[in-house]
Design a protein around this nucleic acid. Structure first.
Lengths: 215, 215
DNA sequence: GCCGCTATTGGACCTTGGGCCAATAGGCCG
DNA sequence: CGGCCTATTGGCCCAAGGTCCAATAGCGGC
């Protein structure tokens, strides 16, 4: 929850653009780093980002293009919102970038205020994403400590099934279910079934074959 | 769940485009309707859409533009995915359309296959949206039947609070909480607290001041 | 004033959940 | 082979949830 300074990464093959943008973001109070190519950025920024960040990237560059960089990052660890800038971008590129989650697509020459607005939005988006990811990871970590049996029991508990029903389902005695259930709540650090349900839904953990009340 | 034929609305001020697109979508097996202006479409399509639908709309039109139509629909009942087509669209328009949820933005002349692909995606998206909306509406309807007191009790029940705690919180006797709790489960058609939690989270109903296990 | 809805409470009774202590059995590792 | 972990079960007991029947009180409407 530490308010680490947001960082803005700039990827452009034109050094003068890099310098100019760096100056702008630093003046605004962000940390800034620039890279002359997508490959260079990928090389340097391998691990997952631990603080709010965003990318300002040129569409056309020698080597990997902005769109290719976007695609590359989406399946990597260093995902973060991207802002595209381009001197002569086209609509198909814009559509593709936006469909893949770009914050915006600016055409040169652009207004500094527009870029800063976009950066603000990107950082905010990333902040929310990081926070959500942290929660999910935390829940997943706890879930990883469960034994296979406990996982099975949990998947039934969160459907609202009674211990008796779970016991029948797993072909064990009700007493055993109680033991597992208790350990599940303990390991998951949930004070109640309601909270357990919440945690599981947060982590995208599906309940066992349950009948939902809504079609 | 009836597999009603999907419908494609076409909004373009050029009658020949309308005719041509209508022919295309009808040939493909969809129902098609065309309108010569955004206003005309708005006038005809007031109520909420009950089956998969999408809009193919020209960016520039006399009167309301495609973007303005998009904005208008977003706060109305007849929301549905939009596909923009334009002879001379620009990147800012594209960005704006995409940020507001457009499926894609095609430039004339475009490939029929591209349009059909986009229509397919739009209809699929709308199908999912309709299904999700239906669920939410169903839960909301049930919730609307709850008395104020029952609503209060529910908001505590889904935090996992004990009847005793809820009683203290609302300054009533535990017995009363049990009565409300039972009526809540009945009215919400939930077989268990777990299911109730799920329903509430689906409908975006927040729990009472609860302490979550995740920060 | 009577009726219906809602909120509230009481009591009796049964079912469930959960904690505590203890024990057996299989599998894995040093 | 003796620990350690996991799964499993038993008994005992208490707390909490759920159900049925019943009753009082306030409030708006006919």
């Amino acid at each position: 929850m530490s308010p680490a300074t947001p960082v803005v990464f700039i990827v452009d093959d034109d050094p003068s653009i890099c310098r100019s943008l760096l100056r702008l973001v630093r003046q605004t109070g962000f940390e800034g780093h620039s890279y002359g190519s997508a490959e260079e950025f990928i090389e340097v920024q391998k691990g997952p980002l631990m603080r709010p960040a965003c990318l300002v990237v040129d569409l056309q560059m020698p080597g990997l293009s902005g769109l290719e960089l976007q695609q590359h990052l989406q399946q990597g660890a260093a995902r973060c919102p991207m802002i595209f800038i381009s001197g002569n971008g086209d609509i198909p590129s814009t559509v593709r970038a936006m469909k893949h989650g770009a914050v915006t697509f600016l055409t040169k020459p652009f207004d500094n205020a527009d870029l800063l607005r976009a950066i603000g939005e990107a950082l905010e988006r990333h902040r929310a994403e990081l926070s959500s990811d942290r929660q999910v990871r935390q829940v997943r970590d706890r879930m990883a400590e469960l034994t296979e049996r406990e996982l099975q029991v949990m998947s039934w508990v969160i459907t609202g099934a009674l211990n008796k029903q779970i016991a029948a389902e797993l072909d064990i005695v009700e007493k055993t279910v109680k033991v597992h259930r208790a350990r599940v709540l303990e390991k998951m650090q949930a004070q109640s079934v309601a909270e357990l349900v919440r945690l599981c839904s947060l982590a995208g953990f599906a309940a066992a074959t349950s009948g939902s009340a809504v079609d």
